[in-house]
């Protein structure tokens, strides 16, 4: 009896029962449709997104009559002309784009050693510590974290107090561009590490030992072996950090204190402050376009295959 139970565990019996139920609901002759059925939720979600985009496209072509607060019935490209000519929007766009590029570069540089150490360390305790340290900020949330930085970096904050102790006058560490960049890098680091780690795990350690025995010091091993093989990870992490930074709202809003608006903040202002949904929609569309062009550029330069998509070539 006991032997029978171990030879055919409860888990399998439950699976049998579930399979029986599934067969009753979804007979075998429907089976060819199963893959499509599984795709359905994703298709629906993407479909909704497309519908929303169409709506936004529609809104972007209508101008706001500032006397009546009504939207025009006929289409015009006036909003696009405004978005492309008004200096404010150009400044905001440039600020977001430059920030996204800087943040991406800095984050990847910082994330790599972290991910490398986490993957390669022989000490399970250190690995666990690094993982927890990585996930902790996720639990805190972006807004709370940004406020935390306000407290730490503010005029009466810990950093300025510490500087005071060594005789440095209080400095303005927040509500400026570097503060926003700093906050973004700190926010993006875990994403980048999490995307780099699997790519590094996929590189056999023996390859690095081999490079060593073939005469490469660690710098050259890194340049000629680790970096090229980790490329899918860098591309993936780079795309994620780039798009997340480009479209970020909370960090520029809180750490920039209104003086360092990104595109998302400008869109927010149009929708909820000036109530010009037309212009807001236009800015949103242009942000989508900018992001798509950037990602498209990355894929064109490095190939989508580098994201380990498509069948593995190795």
């Amino acid at each position: 009896m006991r032997a029978a139970r171990t030879a055919y565990p409860l888990k399998w019996r439950i699976m049998d029962a579930l399979e029986g139920i599934a067969a009753a609901i979804w007979p075998a002759r429907f089976r060819r449709a199963t893959p499509y059925l599984m795709l359905l939720p994703a298709v629906l979600l993407v479909g909704l997104l497309v519908l929303g985009l169409i709506q936004i496209a529609d809104a972007s072509l209508r101008t706001l009559d500032t006397t009546t607060f009504q939207f025009s019935d006929d289409y015009s490209i006036a909003n696009f002309r405004r978005a492309l000519t008004e200096p404010l929007f150009l400044v905001v766009a440039q600020r977001s784009l430059v920030a996204a590029l800087i943040v991406t570069a800095v984050t990847l540089v910082f994330a790599f050693p972290y991910a490398y150490l986490m993957v390669r360390t022989r000490s399970p305790r250190l690995r666990k510590f690094l993982l927890i340290a990585l996930f902790l900020p996720f639990f805190i949330g972006q807004v709370v974290r940004a406020y935390g930085w306000l407290i730490i970096l503010g005029n009466q904050g810990m950093v300025n107090e510490a500087l005071g102790l060594i005789g440095v006058a209080p400095m303005r560490l927040i509500y400026n561009y570097p503060a926003v960049l700093f906050g973004l890098v700190q926010y993006m680091l875990p994403f980048a590490v999490l995307m780099l780690a699997p790519a590094l795990t996929a590189i056999p350690e023996e390859l690095e030992a081999a490079a060593g025995s073939l005469g490469a010091n660690w710098v050259r091993t890194f340049i000629h072996v680790v970096l090229p093989l980790a490329r899918p990870g860098f591309i993936g992490a780079g795309v994620v950090v780039l798009t997340l930074s480009l479209t970020d709202f909370a960090v520029p809003a809180i750490l920039g204190g209104g003086s360092q608006d990104f595109i998302a903040n400008a869109i927010y202002d149009q929708f909820f402050r000036t109530s010009d949904q037309g212009l807001g929609a236009t800015l949103a569309l242009m942000l989508v376009a900018l992001g798509s062009i950037l990602v498209g550029l990355v894929f064109a330069l490095f190939g989508a295959g580098t994201l380990a998509m498509g069948r593995s070539r190795a």
Partner: peptide, 20 residues
Amino acid sequence: VPPHKRSIGMVFQRLALFPH
């Protein structure tokens, strides 16, 4: 003396050829 300063050629158990 670190490995890269020794004059040693090694063939590894799993070859460790560079796939790229």
